[in-house]
């Protein structure tokens, strides 16, 4: 039986990683990356995915993920 190749995504234009087994949705990727999600926003392919959609958003091969924190300095 042919083994299914894991999906690969890039994080913040630098690191490319393989999704762990069972990781299909955006919220699972954030768990895989151990990201504290309380202050962050996430974009997939330059479209921001609001936090209420992280459970539903299905990742694809070669997705470009941007994760960044809120900043308040002025």
């Amino acid at each position: 039986m042919q083994q299914i190749k894991p999906l690969r995504v890039s994080i913040n234009q630098h690191n490319t990683i393989e999704l762990s087994p069972g990781v299909e949705h955006l919220h699972e990727l954030l768990e895989q990356l151990s990201i504290d999600t309380s202050h962050v926003a996430v974009a997939v392919n330059n479209h921001i995915i609001n936090q209420d959609m992280w459970l539903l958003h299905v990742l694809k091969d070669n997705d470009q993920i941007s994760v960044f924190g809120a900043i308040a300095g002025g």
Partner: peptide, 30 residues
């Protein structure tokens, strides 16, 4: 780093600052 957005009453479908960051607090850094 810098961040910039315009919350435009004529473009409500794009949402507001709080749509983007729902619960940031000053522990995020100043």
């Amino acid at each position: 780093q810098g961040q910039l957005l315009l919350v435009d009453p004529q473009q409500p479908e794009a949402g507001c600052y709080q749509c983007l960051f729902s619960a940031a607090d000053d522990k995020s850094g100043s």
